[in-house]
Simulated assay, not measured.
Amino acid sequence: MRGTREVRDNCQLFRLAGLLDAFSEPTFRKVLDKFVEEGPKNFVLDLSQIDFVDSSGLGALVQLAKKVQNAGGTLQIVTNPRVTQTVKLVRLEQFLSLQPSVEIALENIKAK
């Protein structure tokens, strides 16, 4: 997995590509946990370039969502059809705040 981080106003935008699986999950969790602590507390994860998410990746997303909420922030996840299908299979689309675009995700954060 590769990615970039950008800070905008009161939000961190992460654009990720590759696989979010058992192999990449420990690094994903370690890096994002660090940024939750540093702030800003609102996160947009752009997973539109992610090719595959397995159960380890879903677990990491759920833990990240809980950590961001506990820190007083919000998490918006931009997906593609493949990621959306995986998340819907386990009925987490509402909890993980799936969005169709980065622009919509950023607007949702501004509205809160």
Rank of each mutant, 00 (worst) to 15 (best):
L19F: 14
E6Y: 04
V44I: 13
G3R: 10
G3P: 03
L64H: 08
V53Y: 04
V102F: 04
Q99G: 01
K67T: 14
A71H: 11
D9P: 04
L47R: 01
N70R: 13
P81N: 04
F35M: 06
F14I: 02
F43P: 12
N108C: 06
R8F: 11
V78I: 10
V68S: 06
L98F: 00
A60W: 11
N80C: 09
I104V: 14
A105K: 00
P26Y: 01
S101I: 00
L75E: 00
R8Y: 09
P40T: 02
E103I: 01
F23K: 12
V68R: 13
R15I: 08
T4E: 13
A111N: 14
E37H: 09
R5Q: 12
F28D: 06
A22G: 15
L96E: 01
V53I: 06
P26R: 04
S55V: 06
G18R: 07
V87R: 00
T84Y: 10
A71Y: 03
T86N: 03
K110T: 02
F95C: 02
E93Q: 13
F23C: 05
P40K: 05
K41C: 04
L58C: 09
E38N: 12
Q94Y: 06
G73Y: 00
P40E: 01
L106C: 11
V53M: 09
V36T: 14
R5G: 01
L32T: 04
D54N: 12
F95L: 15
E25G: 05
S55W: 06
F28Y: 11
T79C: 12
L75N: 10
G39C: 07
S56C: 10
Q85N: 07
G72W: 09
T4S: 15
N80W: 09
I104D: 13
L16M: 13
C11V: 14
E107P: 04
P100T: 05
Q63A: 12
L19D: 15
D54Q: 11
L20D: 01
I77D: 00
D51G: 15
S55N: 07
T79G: 07
S97P: 03
C11I: 09
V31E: 13
T79H: 15
Q99C: 14
T84F: 03
K112I: 10
A22Q: 13
F28G: 12
E25S: 15
A17W: 13
A22Y: 11
V62G: 08
V7F: 03
E93D: 15
K30P: 02
R2I: 05
S55Q: 10
G39P: 11
F14T: 06
G73N: 05
C11W: 02
D51L: 08
Q76G: 03
